[in-house]
Write a protein that binds this DNA or RNA. Structure first.
Lengths: 333, 333
DNA sequence: TTGTAGGCGTTATCAT
DNA sequence: ATGATAACGCCTACAA
């Protein structure tokens, strides 16, 4: 590997001149040509590690998500990548595996890796692991979930209205007995989605029945028990709102095993989209989040911060969801 | 941010001693204690960038995949992460977006980022973009696909037998008119899967009909035209083997639109697994690749190379697939 | 516009 | 076992 020094020697200029050339400063034309040729001849590529040491910039950002195999997460990453890659930032990805302890460790880990900034989708909204990263002065943008007691930039969805629109649709199709499988209430999105549910019932003057509200983890096996619990009520709900992807999938799985037909025996509306949902018979009603757009906007805010622009801090973007309404929710009249 | 120098001063030792402490060399007990305290007091974390400059190691590896939203890819990454993260390697992820040009660029990009090694899932098997990276001396492990004319470590699946087992199952259920939607023949896995198909027909003495073999892209919209083409034959196949995930999904989509019932009007066997496939009615028959295991093994080989162990080069691991056989392939008798 | 030289935070070599 | 010091490759005053 040749260095700036080799280039300088071959081009018969000083290293300073070469460095200036590389960084786009103005230099004499004939020097420019000599340097270009030297670079070509030596197959020189400069060492960003050395530059990073000097400039304290690594041109890399950390992305911390609960799980790399989660479609929602990868769609967000796709958005991040789209913005950051063209600017030559690289993306260091790691997963917290839905685990607060790992999340804390990984934040520390990313800090140690000296990323210029990070985008974090927190596992829980309750604690302040994320706070540490902030305190170290590196810009952090939250995604999908806010964290209590943390003033931070964030790009999230309007979960209240997302859930509200789902419940409203279910009500409008004639349902009155509507169950919800809510997520853990330490999680910000889970709180909001439950709120949307409550608010919609309230607005339509439908009594909230405690037993129609069950809770579940937002993890891989979430929803299995919860769905069964709803099904075992004497006075079963006619429709169920499942508030994230795994819960939706697992509820469908249980229905299948029990031989319950979606949209006939029991109505279902889920959260988060995958192409396959629309290929079931009937297709699955879902609240869709603009996942890629979340990534794009998070990256843009992060970029702004990394460039030292502190305007409008903390900047919280709240994106709208979209409702896909299908026959998985039965029309009752 | 405090440095090793600050620690040395506070602990009243030399920087050399601090460095040795950090790197786990033996030092006098009381020095050790003084250093520990100093580190604590100063909240010192050492700078891997500086270390990297000196040691020429960045403790980061690049992972280049066709698309971050592809489940197969993310499962592979999950495996890679599992191995590498505990060893404190970070993973720089980027996508080639199914695009040879981007692949070439991103390989260059990763090289410039000074990763210690890279894991690449190549877009095509025909060209030598990957060769460049190799020539630069950094270890590269291929995943899922081999590249012609490149002697490289690789972890792939036995696609021939994967396809063979699928076709064999279809034959055993009484089908004789079996179509295949094969991938682009520049892609290694696509070649192999077609071979498996041909070999199985041959072994069972079934004539290969040219019009039952159609081709499609291995990309997002792959399979749409191809499936229609098979359906428009006068003498339609009774079963179709779709050779990757998008093709399988899109074929199912077309079937749905046309009102064809899977496993009755037309039988289908796909490639690559997602949990949702098993929740359709009937569930979808698929050839399943051990995707996470691919990642694990690739990471292990890469690790070996990064540690200077050149034994058994080029090491090619060929993993077995598994067949899920369901009623999506009709039993004909 | 250019050259020189010091420094970024480590590691590694040499004496001691 | 430890200290002093020269690298590692680049950037950036400063001086010319």
């Amino acid at each position: 590997m040749s260095t700036i020094k080799d280039v300088a020697k071959l081009a018969e200029v000083s290293v300073g001149t070469v460095s200036r050339y590389i960084n786009g400063y103005k230099i004499k034309d004939d020097n420019r040509i000599k340097i270009q040729q030297a670079i070509e001849r030596l197959n020189f590529t400069f060492n960003p590690i050395a530059r990073g040491l000097r400039t304290n910039k690594t041109y890399s950002v950390g992305v911390l998500i609960p799980r790399i195999t989660d479609i929602f997460c990868t769609q967000v990453i796709e958005g991040i990548e789209e913005v950051l890659n063209t600017l030559n930032y690289s993306i260091v990805v790691c997963s917290s595996n839905d685990n607060v302890k790992q999340e804390t460790e990984k934040i520390q880990y990313l800090k140690n890796k000296v990323v210029d900034g990070m985008i974090v989708m927190p596992v829980t909204s309750s604690q302040l692991h994320v706070k540490e990263a902030v305190d170290s002065g590196i810009p952090v943008v939250l995604v999908d979930r806010l964290v209590k007691g943390c003033e931070l930039d964030a790009v999230i969805c309007d979960n209240v209205n997302g859930a509200y629109s789902a419940i409203e649709m279910i009500i409008n199709k004639g349902h009155r007995k509507i169950g919800i499988i809510a997520g853990p209430q330490e999680i910000y999105t889970a709180q909001e989605r439950l709120n949307g549910y409550l608010r919609a019932l309230n607005d339509y003057n439908i009594e909230v029945k405690e037993e129609y509200i069950v809770y579940s983890e937002y993890k891989k096996d979430g929803g299995l028990d919860a769905f069964n619990q709803l099904m075992s009520l004497k006075d079963r709900p006619t429709a169920i709102f499942t508030t994230n992807y795994p819960i939706t999938v697992n509820s469908m799985k249980v229905m299948m095993e029990k031989g319950l037909k979606m949209g006939e025996d029991i109505s279902l509306c889920g959260y988060d989209q995958t192409e396959l949902f629309q290929m079931f018979n009937p297709p699955v009603s879902v609240v869709v989040q603009p996942s890629k757009e979340i990534g794009v906007q998070a990256a843009e805010i992060l970029l702004k911060r990394m460039n030292g622009d502190d305007s409008r801090f903390p900047q919280i973007q709240r994106l709208k969801t979209q409702l896909i309404s299908t026959d998985s929710v039965k029309t009752m009249f």
